[in-house]
Design a protein around this nucleic acid. Structure first.
Lengths: 243, 243
DNA sequence: ACCTGAACACCGTTCAAGT
DNA sequence: ACCTGAACACCGTTCAAGT
């Protein structure tokens, strides 16, 4: 591969395709933030007029949907560490999946809110585990390893809530570092924002704890809470058997 | 002015104010959804030109910020049930707060994602407990009741993640019922959405569990997980003392 | 002091037209 | 078959002007 000789402006080479567009969109959001993503800007990024994109994506909404789908689909390929085989127990599987999703959130903190916030295709799909394939895999893995239908569904619910709560917060912190986020235009700051002052001085405990609140324990917190969740599931599962 | 004295079109009466604008915006989003909220449309809703709003809100971003602040501020007034007094223990306080936040999410499911998703004023503020006043109250309540600084901060983190994970998912379900959500324009549905089919037939376990997955146990789940969280905190707190 | 009209730059999207 | 130009309806926002 390497020097193939056709140059061009920036990213224009292949004849444009849905996949190329989605990848470009994800990269764009990683770099510039979600609010900066515009059909027209994405077009120029790809060396093409915005209108050309409509042959592949149907519209801005479909574009966002496609980005989410592509990221979620990567779960079955990407997660660092090898996927646990059938002999390894559901704890290993949930650990693997949890770290896979966390990897997505950390690699694409600006895209993750999209995964977390957009309405899934079916009402019973819960972000961030919001693709039929992933959920089928989740449920069948647990059922194969001894979960009743009921426990498997309850596990899906608890696991989704856990991932969403922890990773959305972690992504928010990472994302606000990466991007302009609020891009205050200097002037806009002067408006009557009511109590525009983010002034910790009026709050004695916040002042005392500010440093501690600012410490980053994201990884430790995540592992800890994940362990607790798995323990809780184990206990509930054990309740079923002796019945 | 012929015939009617002082009544007018729709909502125009008071001379416009930040509070009136924010309330109108919240009501608008409750009714029409977040994507429908536009400076121009909000203006006409208030019987005024869009440009008049800029005297009170600084811009669309400040408007959204203001809506979030106002909702979060209601926590100290609204929550059903009376706020536990100093004699009642931190468990009662956290129960009260949890149900207060849940009330917000359920009353305004379309606004809640805003609370959950927008970057807070300080990086260590975690949605949905994202106001200085609320966090000061949270921390001081716990410290007054025997938490060390460290435990109080850890509790704040765990509590935020818990609320965010559970309530964002609950609000998403409620919100998608209330609003057009994706408003597919019939035609847009025909585009090459890759696997546009939300077809459960290919997934045997999903087909078997679909009914069970669709059951609504939001309240029971929430109470259960809240109890578990409080239990966990109690255990950790107990670890501090005998040491 | 409070609101409006007109204007600017930028959007998403459609559609007939180019190659 | 694939992309473009021009156009439409709608945005957020500014600013001089009205009352």
């Amino acid at each position: 591969m390497g020097g193939d000789g056709d140059r061009d402006e920036r990213n224009s080479r292949a004849p444009l395709s849905r996949e190329r567009i989605l990848d470009a969109a994800i990269a764009f959001v990683d770099a510039k933030g979600l609010t900066a993503l515009t059909m027209r800007r994405l077009g120029t990024e790809l060396g093409v007029e915005a209108m050309s994109l409509y042959r592949y994506v149907g519209g801005r909404d479909d574009l966002l949907e496609g980005m989410v789908d592509e990221m979620v689909d990567r779960l079955h390929l990407d997660p660092d560490g090898v996927r646990p085989g059938p002999g390894e127990g559901w704890q290993a599987y949930l650990q693997w999946l949890a770290h896979g999703v966390r990897g997505l959130a950390r690699e694409h903190p600006q895209v993750f809110p999209l995964i977390a916030t957009r309405h899934p295709a079916a009402p019973w799909l819960r972000p961030p585990l919001r693709s039929l394939r992933v959920v089928e895999d989740f449920l069948s893995t647990l059922v194969d390893r001894g979960f009743t239908d009921e426990r498997a569904v309850a596990a899906y619910r608890a696991f989704s809530s856990f991932l969403l709560g922890h990773l959305l917060l972690e992504a928010a912190v990472l994302g606000s570092r990466t991007a302009p986020a609020v891009e205050l235009t200097d002037v806009a700051r002067s408006m009557p924002t009511t109590s525009s002052s983010v002034d910790v001085r009026d709050y004695p405990l916040l002042r005392r704890l500010e440093d501690r609140l600012s410490e980053d324990h994201a990884s430790a917190e995540f592992e800890r809470a994940l362990e607790d969740l798995l323990d809780r599931m184990e206990r509930e599962l054990a309740d079923d058997l002796p019945g």
